[in-house]
Nucleic acid binder design. Structure first.
Lengths: 138, 138
DNA sequence: ACCTACATTAGACACGGTCTAAATCTCGTA
DNA sequence: TACGAGATTTAGACCGTGTCTAATGTAGGT
């Protein structure tokens, strides 16, 4: 797990054609800090622990900007919260039903067979596999 | 696609140890009407088109009751809405990003290889595969 | 310094979903 | 038929995530 300086992050943002402002760098810091999968309110909390105060609107704006620029991924597993994932390598997820915890599964080893062909004119945007797990004997 | 009478549905509910009340039968009718995947508010709208008016609370109560009794399944693909699926056979989904439309994929033909072993003491509750698709050239 | 386009902000708002406390229904028992 | 207990339904208040708006701040080019 790499740790990025604020300058590194500015570079990463520029590489994705994103104007690196203070707020965006702090939000990127939170996402790339290795805390795994964060929801918008967790990002907001982390950023506001630091020096640079940021508003809710900016966090939401920035997350959808990062998403559009393929800097992060959206993970939809919880009915009332979206998680954001700084890992853009192809991968899937374990989802612990009891704790809500998400764990990555490297996709290079995983293969899916037997999917039907797509309807005409449709293309695949991505395949998400979610393995829902829980503790034995609950 | 089978069509159920209200009496059939009452039987289905009883088979799942659910007391078949008027409201529950109407909600089951909506879910099993072949409209595919419905959100809570769609169910509410369909039920209130019929004779028997039903409150929002009852729809939510009933949906989670049906879920607990394995009469229906929950499909989580849309960030701001849960869909309910009367098809409890093992299956996966195509999700049309543009229209929000969900289509079933029979799971009997699909196989997944290369998933890592679970952490100790954990068991798999289910594997969901979502193939996100969209129209070519958007 | 000025202009323009972009970025940020507070706070109101929308909406899916939950909770509560009261009303109503069901059904066995007498 | 009347009763009571427990299950069910209900309106409406409430909560949390996420969006929108309109005003303000900021950066870069001339």
């Amino acid at each position: 797990m790499t740790v990025y300086s604020r300058d590194d992050l500015a570079g990463v943002l520029r590489d994705h054609a994103i104007n690196p402002t203070h707020q965006r760098i702090e939000i990127a810091r939170a996402l790339f800090s290795g805390h795994g999968h964060l929801s918008a309110d967790q990002v907001l909390a982390m950023v506001n622990d630091q020096r640079c105060e940021t508003s809710k609107a900016t966090v939401y704006n920035t997350l959808s900007l990062f998403l559009r620029k393929n800097l992060i991924r959206e993970v939809i597993v919880d009915p009332n919260k979206v998680f954001y994932d700084a890992n853009t390598m192809p991968h899937h997820h374990f989802y612990n039903i009891d704790t809500g915890e998400l764990t990555d599964i490297d996709a290079t080893a995983v293969s899916v067979q037997g999917l039907p062909t797509l309807p005409d004119g449709m293309i695949t945007e991505g395949v998400d596999i979610i393995v829902r797990i829980r503790s034995e004997g609950v």
